[in-house]
Design a protein around this nucleic acid. Structure first.
Length: 193
DNA sequence: GGTAGGATGGGCT
DNA sequence: GCCCATCCTACCC
């Protein structure tokens, strides 16, 4: 699969978080030699979403979420794994999209080297912690602008390809569990389980 | 095939 | 001090 050289523009992200989360499905995440097709996302909203990190307001950690769209928000989960989000909404309004899973399409040897315990291809990035590890993302990459050519970017695939989008409740959270804010490509092998 | 429980550290009350 | 936007292993069908 190929993808457009220019990253998706900031206007793609500076929209309501739910729209950005749905539209990120099928897009290509590029990190150095590695590329992976996004197959699962979750929206974390501003007001009324108690599961979102931004619900606690602006702190040193959550500052990026309130900043301009199109930047990476990376955090440490359970003291063990890193997770990648992309900031959405207009500047000053919180909202971000957790990239939960992706399908490796290039630089697979490198991903395997960073995830030696993954046996099958579909174990490489089929979860937020696995995805960050496969792409070599840590807190050092927090705040990166994914709309500018550099360490981490997101691109339109070409050809685009058709797929069916499934919707359901988010996983791994204890608050606001009833909101249908998880999106994934139906019947895709690389979605988390 | 399935699941219960431990590791592990930063953020927030 | 308590709470996690998780993964992996061991162990049990």
């Amino acid at each position: 699969m190929r993808w457009l050289k220019r990253p998706l523009p900031r206007s793609f992200y500076a929209r309501p978080t739910v729209e950005t989360a749905r539209d990120l499905l099928g897009k290509i995440l590029v990190r150095g030699d590695a590329a992976a097709r996004i197959v699962e996302t979750e929206a974390y909203l501003g007001e009324g979403d108690l599961a979102a990190h931004s619900a606690a307001g602006i702190t040193d950690r959550t500052r990026v979420i309130f900043g301009p769209a199109g930047h990476a928000y990376i955090y440490l989960s359970y003291g063990v794994h890193h997770c990648l989000d992309v900031v959405a909404e207009q500047d000053g309004r919180p909202g971000c999209v957790l990239i939960r899973a992706a399908e490796p399409i290039a630089g697979i040897d490198g991903m395997r080297a960073r995830r030696p315990k993954a046996k099958r291809l579909r174990d490489l990035a089929s979860g937020p912690g696995k995805l960050a590890a496969a792409l070599g993302l840590t807190l050092e990459q927090n705040g990166l602008d994914v709309t500018r050519p550099g360490e981490l970017t997101i691109h339109e695939p070409c050809p685009k390809g058709e797929f069916e989008i499934a919707v359901g409740p988010r996983v791994g959270i204890s608050k606001s569990v009833e909101l249908p804010l998880r999106f994934w490509i139906a019947d895709n092998e690389h979605v988390s389980r």
